[in-house]
Amino acid sequence: MRRLSGAALVTPLVLVLVGVFVGPLLVMLPTSFHPYVPGQGIGTSWTLENYTVAFTDGYYREVIGRTLWMGFLVTFIALVIGYPLAYFMARTTRTWRAVATLLVMFPLFLNLVVRSFGWIALLSNRGVINTLLMDLGLTTKPIRMMFDMTGLVIGMVHIYLPFMVFMLLSSISRVPRDVEDAASTLSASPSRVFWFVTLPLTAPGILAGCTLVFVLTISALVTPRLLGGPTFKVMSTLIYDEFLVKLDWPSGTAFAFILTAIALLVIWGANRVARRVAGGAA
């Protein structure tokens, strides 16, 4: 009886997921194994070339490598900025926590495109920052911060930092204060309490936050499109162009599946590590 009602409760969600997520994926899968015939569209014969070319062609390899490197950088910077912020929020007074929460959440209320254009206004060669630097005489030529990794990473960290902070916040808030106090009664200085107790106990949260930010970053489209420009491509913008500019659906589909596979691999790996790290803690 209980099992039955449980199944009934998850049925709507399963139906939606199968209908709008798994279904289209399966429909697209065959497309990625057909050749692209210029002027004609999707061919009828079968081939693996759409996949192999992603790993043999220098340009495609560069795009994949760049995407992963971007994911790593954004995740790393979001963690380094986000952990102290989340720690402060977890340990401060109720009022300060409310203020900080609002500040962290605020960017989420703004449209993605608006935010990206905001960064363009700041980062471009004639943007606010470069104009200011040149007016102050700190530099004679504008520093290039757009259409390359710098601008992309700045914009992406800004967008995904809240996700990291909230994952870390819930994890840090759950560390029992008694356990930290116990460490300090056992001759551990505050930095050692953090290193030997707080940090290991929040490791699952760190892992979850990193996984989330990494996966969101490598699959983001709008920000790379606007801050990376037409030439500095990552996988998502490449897929977009394959589909809508080159009309090469088979190749676009193959790349989409590769990106999905990377994301799933990262999630699976993180889960395994989490289980190891948590050890007795979970």
């Binding site: 008694d178 356990v179 106090d181 116990a182 460490a183 056992l186 200085s189 007795g280």
Partner: peptide, 29 residues
């Protein structure tokens, strides 16, 4: 500071380190 007082404290909540074995808990101090 607490960590320089050379005291032992037993908590109502036990407050053992959940990520460490019993051996490592006792070895901590």
């Amino acid at each position: 500071a607490t960590h320089k007082r050379r005291i032992g404290l037993v908590f109502q909540s036990y407050a053992l380190f959940p990520h460490l074995t019993v051996f490592d808990n006792v070895a901590f101090g």
